[in-house]
């Protein structure tokens, strides 16, 4: 009884925030549409959103584009999965080796200051042409995010919870599974989300600038051949994919948080 009274106004505010967000998005799209139709923006440079959506739908029914989508998505999926696993394992290991961690810390802190795809030529020389070097770029872009999140999560496990585990005389494995992992879960989730985003960014950027296949390349190619319909259609698809996959992970995450009575 009490709870409904407490959460009612909070819910309606949260709902208002969400509706406002959608409203603003819709408004921006409509404004852009109007600006294009009324000629405020050069028709050559920017397509009206309605045409972009139509172009995207049309493109997604062509075999060629579907092949590109499959190629890019599988590359991202592999890079993402591998990076989450590696990042987690490395994070756990590094957490247990404080001296090594102190030594590596400056490198980790500066990692994202270096544009990773400067290593593309090296990766091609090592791994050959094709999907492998792109996968490697996505992987390299995503591993440290997961690693850092794992370290942070383990750091933030309240020491008193470890002592509770010892009071219950839990072994190493039970302590890890029943206490440490659940306590670190919010940070781990953050790492997984970032890893997905960075793997996607890495792969698309690699394709865009350097490779000769996949969605990123198709966009760059369309730009070079002044094919704005294809370019905008694919662009919308890529952006939507990123936003939707991120949104799915976020909603999963907030379900988890709600389960802990947060939010």
């Amino acid at each position: 009884m009490k709870r409904t009274i407490v959460t009612r106004p909070a819910m309606s505010r949260a709902r208002r925030v969400v509706w406002t967000r959608w409203g603003i998005t819709l408004l921006l799209v409509l404004l852009l549409e109007a600006a294009c139709r009324l000629g405020f923006v050069p028709k050559l440079a920017v397509l009206p959103p309605s045409e972009v959506i139509a172009a995207m739908v049309a493109l997604l029914s062509t075999q060629e584009v579907l092949t590109n989508v499959a190629e890019t998505f599988s590359t991202v999926a592999i890079a993402f999965t591998a990076s989450v696993l590696t990042g987690f394992v490395l994070g756990v290991a590094l957490h247990g080796a404080p001296r090594l961690r102190r030594a590596i810390d400056p490198l980790l802190a500066s990692y994202y200051a270096v544009p990773i795809f400067v290593f593309y030529p090296l990766l091609v020389a090592l791994l050959g042409l094709g999907a492998l070097p792109l996968m490697a770029i996505g992987y390299l872009a995503a591993v440290p995010a997961m690693l850092i999140a794992t370290l942070l999560g383990l750091d933030r496990v309240p020491p008193v919870l470890r002592r509770v585990a010892r009071m219950h005389r839990l072994g190493r494995v039970s302590t890890a599974v029943l206490v440490i992992l659940p306590a670190a879960l919010p940070n781990l989730f953050q790492g997984i989300k970032l890893s997905l985003a960075y793997a996607f960014i890495g792969v698309i950027a690699g394709e865009f600038i350097l490779s000769s296949g996949g969605l990123g390349y198709a966009i760059a190619f369309a730009y070079d051949s002044f094919d704005n319909r294809t370019m905008y259609g694919l662009m919308l698809f890529v952006l939507l994919s990123a936003v939707i996959s991120n949104g799915l992970l976020s909603s999963w995450e907030s379900r988890l948080q709600r389960r802990r009575g947060l939010q």
């Binding site: 008193v160 919870l161 659940p182 306590a183 879960l185």
Partner: peptide, 9 residues
């Protein structure tokens, strides 16, 4: 313990 040590999950 002195600190809150309930498991939030």
């Amino acid at each position: 313990f002195q600190e809150d040590s309930s498991f939030p999950w």
